[in-house]
């Protein structure tokens, strides 16, 4: 089956305020989609709704993931079904070591899929292997999740988790924000290494820069809670050059959807 994710007429509110006003999106396996758009148009909301954050209220529309109604799945079951969201602001969790965190997560996911838990040595081997994906050199076993991490380390840690959990659908929410050029390259390389014909990636970003490294098949512009324009990767370049004002104008003149 080629199609993985289908979002239909999605309306989402937070505390009575409508953020998403009818989003439509289809993502197939093997594809990379980029979602761009100015601040405050609902990009992170879209990622959070897919992850299952309870703060948001879905008032209308559907999300179908691997032929399942996504809203029937709990936050953890979405992850176990292969959804991964790389967060814009990963939370610090003092006292929970990264290795304990990943071991618990991985084994719960394996149990859900009917697989036996990894042995201690298998797990350690996997950790060492996946650390290389994002060129992590630090010892992770004693470090608490994101605690005291720099902005770059936090984002690398998100991609490291993605490598460990091997998701089918990855949504990267402004993974490039706060990264220097080297860290950006490392993070993007990591994402590219993890890409297969069977997986799909949605990259949410403000800047075209990340898309030099992670080349998208489709670029969408999210504006005023809707996807108002979609196009090939060149659309990102056009946005970089011209900014978002022309989108706004065309949208207000009714030229866009």
């Amino acid at each position: 089956m080629l199609q993985m994710l289908e979002i239909n007429n999605l309306h989402v509110s937070i505390k009575g305020k409508e953020i998403l006003k009818g989003v439509n999106l289809k993502v197939n396996r093997g594809e990379v989609h980029a979602i761009m758009g100015p601040n405050g148009t609902g990009k992170s909301t879209l990622a959070s709704v897919i992850a299952g954050k309870e703060l948001f209220e879905v008032t209308e529309g559907t999300i179908t993931y691997k032929n399942k109604n996504l809203f029937d799945l709990s936050i953890e079951d979405r992850a176990r079904e292969g959804i991964f969201v790389g967060f814009q602001y990963p939370v610090e969790i003092p006292g929970v070591s990264i290795s304990n965190f990943m071991k618990t997560a991985l084994n719960e996911i394996r149990q859900y899929r009917g697989l036996p838990p990894l042995t201690a040595s298998e797990f350690l081997k996997l950790m060492e292997e996946k650390k290389k994906v994002v060129e992590l050199t630090a010892k992770l076993s004693n470090r608490s999740v994101n605690e005291g991490f720099s902005g770059g380390e936090k984002k690398k840690n998100e991609i490291f988790q993605m490598a460990m959990l091997e998701p089918e659908l990855s949504i990267l929410d402004e993974t490039d924000s706060g990264l220097d050029i080297d860290a950006l390259r490392i993070v993007a390389n990591g994402v590219n290494q993890l890409k297969t014909k069977e997986t799909a990636t949605i990259v949410i970003t403000h800047y075209q820069r990340l898309l030099d490294y992670i080349v998208p098949d489709v670029v969408h512009v999210l504006f005023d809670g809707k996807i108002v324009k979609s196009g090939p990767k060149e659309l990102a370049l056009e946005l970089e050059e011209k900014g978002y004002d022309w989108i706004k104008q065309e949208y207000e003149q009714g030229k866009l959807i």
């Binding site: 299952g52 709990s74 953890e76 969790i93 304990n100 965190f101 618990t104 959990l165």
Partner: peptide, 19 residues
């Protein structure tokens, strides 16, 4: 955050309380 990585709510609570 913990649940979004596949950890059930009960275990996520335990991890945080233990920490």
């Amino acid at each position: 955050y913990l649940r979004s990585r596949g950890i059930c709510e009960r275990n996520a609570r335990r991890l945080l309380l233990f920490a």
